[in-house]
Design a protein around this nucleic acid. Structure first.
Lengths: 215, 215, 215, 215
DNA sequence: GATGAATGAGTTTTCATTCAT
DNA sequence: CATGAATGAAAACTCATTCAT
């Protein structure tokens, strides 16, 4: 079940003190939130699928929303925060790239892999960020602090050395990110049943971005 | 309120027999569905914002889901079906284009404009299509029948005449669509507050797509 | 539609001023009350089956209960009150009988015929008399005044002349009535689908009563 | 409260795991269903009379109809199914009778006693069987399987030995049953206030049936 | 008279949350 | 710690009745 990879990571992370029941609750909630959406999911159903009593959920999570945040927030942070050794930010931004191509390839493959392992949570995140301030605010903060400026620096570096076209760095970033996310969503959300050659499609997408931004 | 443009069109369309209260219900429901999501919206709140009794909603729409479908379906159809004279399909696909650039520009400006006028409904649609079979099935059917093959034909034509690169037409379509939708979402959903130069950003996006796909 | 015979009679009776729509409402209500019961029937459904607007019902009948009473009361009265020329009371009680057999035969055939023509209303009556004081009180009054004493007199007459057994007249009446009603209910309510020889079964029932009560 | 005898039996039966509140709900529902009829009873009122929250009802019974069936079905089954040691079927049909008189007496006293102890439920049953397929179908099945043929065998035996008259056994059964039920209904439903000498009335009824059917 | 849209009180049912065991 | 019965507030939906047209 690669969609629940995050739980393994949670378990092996420092907080690690998750009881057996707690893990089952998180797994069940993740599944059903992804299937039906947060608001349409009842705690009763989560309890049943997790094989625990309804009261047990509230022993570990004060409210249903607490449960949602407990599922989504760590992944959201892991998506960005640099103190996770193998994280995106470290991998992608804290290295020196010889070319924008290099950078985009790393970015795309890295995030594609991450999405593959966290499909359900990412789906929940995408659905719910629109409706929960508690998700939106920290996400914006983390994103701005850890990603935005580093990304911008990378873009400006390769604009200055002439590899990529002169336009507002925000536009470059938007176009780059759009295509990575677009691939991920098409692959895992919209057309998961289709017959994908992941490697080839990733390469095509990277080539497309780079050529589109080339001078 | 350009987000509710669709109601004007509904009113002027053949079905047109919408009572005053019915319009208010549709407007209120659209607003709140977009704000909080379908499942988190109560009919009581819709009634209050619409200024009608709760029972009135159910006189016009058998169930809450019926109300959702009544809001989303017409827009979904209008998005595609060719018998609406000025529709997307007619505009974009039933013409001859001298270049893929031409086609992409038309597509991007046309859909950008449509999205601008139908922000709320499109947001609702994007949120809810994941959870309602009643939305997914007809959408797939309409999309497949009215868009897919025509789009593919356009792509293959310009692949044959050498304007765009040789790769699976599905990939070309995906990359093209991703960037149009990506722009629309960034503009109206994720960063509506930012300082956008719509014209310029559209042009940049079109150029990017075309250059990225050029041979 | 012999079950709605009563409406014909209503029409031809003195009140006779029933509009076309009114008749349709009475017919529809009778049907649905008999099918689902009074409490489980909505005025909306009555209106639809009658082919009139819901408001029209309330133009003719102040409340839903009014409609019920309008359907059930005349039949209930007709069942007993002597001023309807051809009524039960006249037929059965105001004549001289040469034997109890004679009397029971008349009673049984007469009421069987009446039930056959008023199945639906009788069903409604039986169901609803348990729950509506407005039905129970007048029924008791009419029954006591017009039936009870006359019936008792008949019984006592044939007890005195030795045709039937000595026991409390109330018991004789109960046993007699039970068997007439029992036949009617079995025939029209419980086992209407069975293969009945009405004539023979009536005769059997009459014989049974008379023999059971003989000295 | 002899009308609720069934609950005692339910409690002492194998399922016995009825919580305190559950018993109160069943008692309250039985009372009000009998008073006003199923359709005219609100779950809110049941909850109030039972002294529980409305939600509690639905924790134990998925729907209001479920509650009805939970009340009526066990009694209905107990009325017939032979595996209840002291049940009607065992008592009445599985013994050898020396005469039809013997049989009718046993039947009448036995069912009279049962009715006395289950007045409310039997009233609900009689009212609602007309409107609920879920009640009608199992009742017919149970009745046909456990009663009909055994009863018929008894009748035919005494027709052959000449104690009772030659007529279709169905008619004999109808006349017999009619008078037992007729007595029960008169006694407990129609005229419970009257001054009854139960013993005497039962004897009269038995004598009447037997004499009426004698050769 | 007839209509049917509108009402609002009421109905059944759901659900997050609590708490005694 | 875990349970699951109980809660009560709120949800979706129904319905008899009214009233402007």
């Amino acid at each position: 079940m690669p969609e629940n990879d995050w739980i393994q990571e949670l378990l092996s992370s420092d907080k690690g003190a998750l009881s057996d029941k707690q893990v089952k609750i998180l797994e069940a909630a993740t599944e059903i939130f992804a299937e039906r959406g947060y608001a349409a999911t009842s705690t009763n159903e989560i309890a049943r699928r997790a094989g625990v009593a309804e009261g047990t959920i509230f022993r570990h999570y004060k409210t249903k929303k607490d449960l949602l945040l407990s599922i989504v927030t760590p992944t959201m942070i892991k998506f960005v925060a640099p103190h996770f050794a193998k994280s995106f930010a470290k991998d992608v931004f804290n290295e020196d790239y010889v070319s924008y191509t290099d950078f985009v390839r790393k970015l795309a493959f890295n995030r594609f892999d991450f999405a593959k392992k966290n499909q359900q949570i990412l789906k929940i995140f995408l659905q719910e960020i629109a409706f929960h301030e508690e998700l939106r605010t920290p996400f914006k903060a983390i994103f701005t602090e850890h990603i935005l400026n580093k990304f911008k620096a990378v873009v400006e570096k390769f604009q200055q050395n002439g590899e990529i076209v002169s336009m507002p760095p925000e536009s470059v970033m938007r176009l780059t990110v759009t295509n990575v996310i677009g691939l991920v969503l098409a692959r895992f959300l919209f057309l998961p049943e289709a017959d994908w050659d992941d490697e080839a499609e990733l390469e095509r997408t990277v080539d497309f971005i780079v050529k589109g931004l080339s001078k």
